[in-house]
């Protein structure tokens, strides 16, 4: 319980600092604050999808359903955080570029990522046999993850994009105020802890579902 309360206080404190202590970027003005939701959500998306790929590979090696539970749960949560990053980015685009959606390379690549991982969940939903579902979706997840660094970090940098890159840029050093970076970094940690908490709940729920299915089968 102490860890949960600490997480709650951590996120409240860093959000408050982000709003009240960190300066606003002159061009972005008040919309700078979207960054404290948008950037951590995007980073946690990468962590979640990498976690899903890791457990998919472990499932293929060990054939243990615990890994399948982790892979499925982290893909679901990765998709959720990706939606948060997309929606917050879209609101930002409206304020800065004049439209919610512009088919900018960054927006297009995130759209493809959403499609790829929605297809993963559709695949899982379409197979009844648990072992077959786990095996096929593990293979899919391993292949799908190849697109994540490509779509998030590489493609938007190949083509001209309106999206700024103040942190991961070609200039070799972060192009951002230290206070904004501190708040964003702390919130990445907070969002990551939140992800692992939600993940543990989803995995436990998956285990309960399997136990119930097993109980129903033995009753029949």
């Amino acid at each position: 319980m102490i860890a949960r309360v600490a997480l709650f206080v951590w996120i409240v404190a860093w959000l408050a600092l982000g709003f009240l202590w960190a300066p606003l970027v002159p061009v972005l003005d008040a919309t700078t604050r979207v960054f404290y939701f948008h950037f951590p959500a995007a980073m946690v998306t990468c962590i979640a999808l990498a976690w899903s790929m890791l457990h998919s590979a472990l499932y293929l090696k060990r054939r243990d359903f615990v890994h399948d539970d982790h892979a499925a749960a982290s893909a679901e949560l990765g998709l959720l955080f990706c939606l948060v990053a997309t929606i917050s980015g879209s609101l930002w685009a409206k304020a800065m570029w004049g439209a919610y959606w512009n088919w900018d390379p960054r927006e297009t690549s995130i759209f493809f990522l959403l499609l790829i991982y929605s297809a993963y969940l559709a695949l899982r939903g379409s197979i009844d046999d648990p072992a077959r579902r786990a095996r096929l979706s593990a293979i899919y997840s391993c292949i799908a993850f190849v697109t994540v660094p490509l779509l998030i970090f590489i493609v938007p940098r190949i083509y001209f994009s309106l999206h700024p890159d103040p942190l991961f840029n070609t200039r070799g050093k972060p192009d951002m105020d230290g206070r904004i970076m501190a708040c964003a970094g702390a919130l990445v940690l907070g969002f990551t802890a939140l992800f692992f908490w939600l993940l543990s709940l989803r995995v436990r729920l998956g285990r309960l579902e399997r136990r119930r299915e097993l109980a129903l089968e033995t009753r029949v």
């Binding site: 949960r4 709650f8 996120i11 409240v12 959000l15 408050a16 709003f19 009240l20 604050r33 939701f37 908490w197 939600l198 709940l201 436990r204 729920l205 309960l208």
Partner: peptide
């Protein structure tokens, strides 16, 4: 104003997840 809404949403989400965790723990005990 925006900070207030953000903190309210986070607070509600936190309470919801805590309740969810308690419910899962109850189901695991059965």
């Amino acid at each position: 104003m925006v900070l207030g809404v953000a903190l309210l949403v986070w607070g509600l989400l936190f309470v919801y997840v805590l309740r969810l965790e308690r419910r899962i723990r109850d189901l695991e005990k059965r």
